Computed example of a mutant assay.
Amino acid sequence: MNALATRGAIAHIIAEMGDPGEALRQTREILAAEERALGPDHTNTLSTRQSLAQYLARSGNLSGGIDVLADLLPDLIRALGADHPDVFDARSDLARYHRQNGNRAQAVRRLQEVLADLGRIHGAEDHRVVLARQELDDLLVQPE
């Protein structure tokens, strides 16, 4: 494991221990170093951008997390392909952040798209499809 990956793992632990603000600060530093050393399209850099979005959202900056993911998704799709699990994670996170940020319609639309694509790839009974369907159902029964 290289130094940047180790720092990323430490930032993740810090976030899990309840300090997403510190994890966010460290992740910004890691991202800057990865962009210099690996380039903006390297899979490690893309993964760190995804972590950045998560820590922004967890620290209360949902709009920031949404913006980072919206910018990241085309790059992830180009680098990994539209059907890659990391792409689905980012798309699901984006829907979740829209939901948490009060944009129910955007969350529903995005979750419906994720559910349709997961079903196409894995079949209706796959656990990922079942979980996505549950998340969408939960969202649909909540009052606006």
Rank of each mutant, 00 (worst) to 15 (best):
H12S: 00
A57P: 00
T45L: 06
H98C: 02
R91S: 04
A132R: 10
S92A: 09
L31S: 12
G39E: 00
L4H: 11
L24F: 12
V130D: 04
G8K: 06
R49A: 01
V130G: 03
T27H: 09
L31C: 02
E22F: 14
T6F: 00
E125S: 06
I13S: 13
S47K: 08
Q54V: 12
R78A: 09
L4I: 08
T48C: 10
L111M: 14
Q100V: 00
E16F: 09
E144M: 08
D137S: 11
R58S: 14
L69K: 02
A5Y: 14
D86F: 07
A90H: 00
D89K: 10
E34P: 03
A15W: 14
N61Q: 08
L4T: 01
L52R: 05
L24Y: 01
R58P: 00
D86I: 14
R110G: 04
A70C: 13
L38W: 09
I77D: 01
R128M: 07
L115D: 11
A15E: 15
L69Q: 02
I13C: 06
G8R: 09
D86W: 00
H42L: 09
P143T: 00
S51P: 11
E35T: 14
D67L: 11
R120I: 10
S47P: 00
L115R: 06
V129W: 03
I13W: 12
A132Y: 09
M17W: 01
R99V: 01
L73T: 09
L56M: 02
A32I: 14
P143Y: 09
V87W: 10
A37V: 07
H122W: 15
E16L: 15
G102D: 03
V68H: 06
D89V: 12
L69G: 01
L52T: 02
A70L: 01
L24C: 09
L139N: 01
H12V: 06
L139D: 10
L72F: 02
R110I: 12
E16P: 05
R110V: 13
A70F: 10
A23D: 10
R133Y: 01
V68Q: 07
H127K: 04
G123F: 13
R120Q: 10
A15F: 06
A32F: 05
V68G: 01
E29I: 07
I10S: 14
P40T: 05
H12L: 05
R128G: 03
T45A: 03
N44W: 13
L46Q: 11
R58M: 05
E16A: 04
A124W: 05
R96M: 10
L73S: 03
D126S: 04
A9M: 04
H12W: 15
R104E: 05
R58W: 15
H98A: 00
L62M: 14
A79Y: 10
R110C: 02
I77V: 15
L56Q: 08
G64Y: 07
P20K: 02
I121A: 06
